[in-house]
Amino acid sequence: MSTESSSTYDFLFKVVLLGDSGVGKSNLLSRYTRKEFNLDSKSTIGVEFATRTINVDGRIVKAQIWDTAGQERYRAITSAYYRGAVGALLVYDITKQGSYRNVQRWLKELRDHVDSNIVISLIGNKSDLKHLRAVSTDEAQWFSTENGLSFVETSALDASNVENAFQNILTDIHHIVFRSTEPISDTINPGRGETIQVSQSQEPTKTGGCC
C-alpha cells in the first residue's frame, strides 16, 4: 500500500500464511518472493511480509503476503493480520501429524476473523521429506475437498510447487475480484458469494518504490 512502490499494478491482494510454528511458512514466503531458503531460520517474531508482483490474465497483480508467528503469541495483532486479507495459505508439515490436525483450528480462526469470501488454499509443506511423511496426500486432498479448499503439496527447500501454490491462489482471487467487478459466469469457487471485499487491497494503478 506504499505509494512508493516501483511497479505499476492493477490489483493488490493481501494473502496471509497460517499454520503451526515450524511448518515452514517463512521459508515458503522467502522462496516465493526472494527465491531463498534458510535451513536454520528462526521463529518469526510478530509479522513478516513481502510482496511480489505477477501477471494474472494480463493484469498486474501485486501480492502482499503476510507471515506471522505460528505460536499463540501476538494476539493483539490478529485483527490487523486478517483484516483485508483476500487469500490465505493454510500450511502444515507433511511430516508432522500435529500440524495437520491443527489445520482445523486455524481454519476456524480464519473464518472467525475474515469475510467468508476469502480464498483458502491448503498447503502440505516439506514434501521433500518423503521418508518422514506422516500425513497422506489422499487424506489432505479429501479434507480440502470437504472444506472447499484447494490443495497442493510443496517444498520450500527444493522449490517444488511453491510457484504454483501462490500463482493458483492469486489467480483464484483475481477471478473472484474480476467476476465481482465484471460478472462472468465462470466460477472458480462455487458457492462463494459475489462480494469479496477488496476495497482495502484493491488499489488502482500506482507508481513508486520497492518490491
Binding site: 500500500m1 506504499s2 517474531i45 509479522v47 495483532i77 490487523a80
Partner: peptide, 16 residues
C-alpha cells in the same frame, strides 16, 4: 518498530 507494520517504505500499514 518491532512489528515492522508501520515502517516507512516496507510497512504495509505505514501509509494508513
Amino acid at each position: 518498530p518491532d512489528l515492522r507494520l508501520f515502517l516507512p517504505n516496507t510497512g504495509p500499514l505505514h501509509q494508513d
